[in-house]
Design a protein around this nucleic acid. Sequence first.
DNA 1: CTTAACTCGTACTACGGAATACGAGTTCTA
DNA 2: TAGAACTCGTATTCCGTAGTACGAGTTAAG
Lengths: 199, 199
Amino acid sequence: MSTSTPGRRRRADAERSIARIVSAARESLSKDPTASIDDIAKAAGVGRMTLYGHFRTRADLVEAALADALRAGEEVLGAVDLTGDARGALTRLLDSSWSLVAESTALLAAAQGTLPAGRIRQLHTAPAERVEELIRRGQEQGAFRTDLPMTWLVGVIQHVLHGAAEEIRTERLKPDETARVVIATVQSILAVPPPPAPN
Amino acid sequence: MSTSTPGRRRRADAERSIARIVSAARESLSKDPTASIDDIAKAAGVGRMTLYGHFRTRADLVEAALADALRAGEEVLGAVDLTGDARGALTRLLDSSWSLVAESTALLAAAQGTLPAGRIRQLHTAPAERVEELIRRGQEQGAFRTDLPMTWLVGVIQHVLHGAAEEIRTERLKPDETARVVIATVQSILAVPPPPAPN
DNA sequence: CTTAACTCGTACTACGGAATACGAGTTCTA
DNA sequence: TAGAACTCGTATTCCGTAGTACGAGTTAAG
């Protein structure tokens, strides 16, 4: 039903419209997860009826927007060199993807309001697995901790990034500081903790 | 306008109603940040009109609920022994307050939707200062890191707790594991990081 | 050039929630 | 126990958004 679905042949202008709508949806919902369909149509420079012609319901649209964001995320992930020292790889990964994740915070919120929880998780599996893979490698190298559940480690990284987004929005964190701060924080979370002081 | 405001004398039954309403608001909004006024009135076992008699707008009500939650939080914070070793104090603090913060995630979301951002921050200052105080003490003891902005350290703890709440909700984290996981994570974030490997 | 696909305005229904008005009944409190 | 404070149901207004219907105009594609 969305961009990647080869469902049936479409005319070129329709293809173009869809692309603009999905892009506008991503942008609008990332600013305000409650943006109305009308807002999105306007942002896309397209009539509301055209939008309804391609997305029957709001949920359809939100899903397409989320899928698009995740597709973009996977693209970035795919371009990052994750070989070698896991700590270095993690830094590279965060350096090139933190802003993308951060910007999608509100979009995710929109999805959580309209999409079934299972669907969201499903869409996240691919990128999540990449991160999981990296963490596992780091664990095998002895660079990352093994005393916490893998799902938590993956999840908490996301939450830290979303948190960073909010700190930026409320101006408690300067944008040019963010990369350093986020990387330092996540590295600390994944690092092998020192043994508890015996005394 | 809320419980603690001594604005004017109220009859005992009014006082009771307000208490039930605020409590119900906290509970309802913590489950679903979009809960309607009607839902809350029902949950409080009170007529909708009674509610409007005490809270003129939805925003008033949300603010009262948030204030109440924060008041409860401060109470807990006040009861925790924060003296001595900062790491131990942090553990004690998280141990007794993580669930409270976690449960307020949705309530906060409701507030962000209806209250001006500044107001929310204002209400948070008191508890935030307590945490800040603890971190500063830990820094002076050499137990906590000093290479990241204080506002970030305070903020990221909140985000980790909110994240934990979500992981529980989506059943990616077992409730009985949470305290340990959260404490380990936050301790790692605050710990003094090892110097970057020279090679 | 023909036609099917697409665009898109206007008007409409449906729905739900916030807030107000009114008024009758109930319960504190002095 | 008198009266003010409080409770609370019903009805009503207002508003914004999702989604549908219709139909005329425009554009791509074979």
